[in-house]
């Protein structure tokens, strides 16, 4: 029989080795998987996407910016551009590069798959928002056109991705860029968030952590060079101006839709109190949103809080005559008027 101490040491070594190899994110196996992204086709497609993005935003693309966005050296980027132009996907002009019609349609196909996948993740899975983009970066190179179309049909042919970007149609149509930066609003002006840029990842994660989402209503309170103060769905938020650059908004004009004070949520009801549903936060998506709407949680429905569970959460609500328990995290996202 092996001595117990020796056995324990061997066990410890084996466990550590397995962890080093298979640990999610940091393990050798997942690193190897990530490194395979350096393949040629992936680079070509990522470069096309980057150039298209520049053209869409009316800025100039350079060899350096391509190298920076693809995490390759400038020499490799230059070589890549030559490859693209011999493939007939782009032409070189004096002040930069321009996609040919063929290159543009290739880029749009990749973008369509990317955004469809993000929409799918947002609506049909529980993958957290900060991981949508990186997952789509992988999926866009893997899915075939037929698979992408099947996915689009399955999720109801959406027009926008969850960040508010339009999804190109199968024939490659995409509307011109619209909306303004949040910084363009004057104090007291109201607007809807139409787009939250998902790159760089760290900035996006910070915006998501603030509870911002596409479709949220904002009102500018004050802005200075150091900070921007604004109300989002009535709650005050303070951000650095750099962060607000990632937010695109569209002003709203109709007076009656303006949210002037913080919204009350269903979770704020005391037992026995009644309230009318105003809206379900757009941050609640997919199955959970559909489930609530199926149960009759729609604007105008009157809901009464009936009782709390013995452990305090969830709470049971009377919705259209049925007793339905909802968790606090979900009740927080249903806005009501008492």
């Amino acid at each position: 029989m092996i001595e117990p101490l020796k056995a324990l040491i061997i066990f410890g070594i084996v466990t550590t080795l397995l962890a080093i190899i298979f640990l999610p994110k940091y393990g050798l196996y997942s690193r190897w998987k990530r490194n395979r992204r350096g393949m040629k086709r992936v680079l070509v497609e990522d470069a096309l996407k980057h150039i298209f993005d520049c053209e869409y935003k009316n800025i100039f693309c350079t060899t350096e910016s391509i190298a920076g966005s693809l995490l390759i050296s400038t020499d490799e980027a230059a070589e890549l551009l030559t490859r693209l132009s011999t493939m007939g996907l782009l032409v070189t002009l004096d002040n930069g590069v321009k996609l040919t019609a063929e290159g543009r349609s290739y880029a749009l196909r990749i973008i369509r798959v990317h955004r469809l996948w993000e929409r799918y993740l947002a609506d049909e899975t529980s993958v957290p928002p900060t991981e949508w983009h990186s997952s789509a970066e992988l999926a866009e190179h893997k899915l075939t056109t037929a698979e992408a179309e099947a996915l689009a049909a399955q999720i109801g042919n959406p027009n926008f991705d969850p960040h508010g970007d339009p999804i190109p149609t199968p024939s490659g149509e995409i509307p011109p860029k619209k909306g303004h930066s949040l910084l363009s609003l004057n104090s007291g002006e109201f607007a809807d968030i139409t787009h939250i840029e998902d790159e760089p990842e760290a900035v996006y994660a910070q915006l998501i952590a603030q509870g911002l989402y596409v479709g949220m209503q904002v009102m500018m309170i004050e802005r200075s060079n150091e900070r921007v103060r604004f109300a989002a769905d009535g709650e005050e938020i303070v951000l650095a101006p750099l962060l607000t650059n990632n937010l695109t908004v569209a002003p709203i004009t109709e007076e009656e839709h303006r949210i002037t004070s913080p919204l009350e949520s269903l979770a704020s009801l005391k037992i026995g109190e009644e309230a009318k549903v105003l809206s379900i936060s757009k941050a609640m998506r997919g199955q959970q949103r559909r489930r609530l709407m199926d149960l009759g949680v729609i604007p105008g429905t009157t809901i009464r809080a009936e009782m709390k569970s013995a452990s305090g959460d969830p709470t049971a609500y009377n919705i259209k005559g049925a007793l339905v328990a909802l968790r606090q995290q979900h009740a927080n996202m249903i806005f009501v008027q008492k």
Partner: peptide
């Protein structure tokens, strides 16, 4: 199972 779809509601019948 992190990415699997999830939704919560619990009906309490009479």
């Amino acid at each position: 199972l992190k990415g699997e779809a999830s939704a919560f509601s619990l009906e309490l019948p009479p």
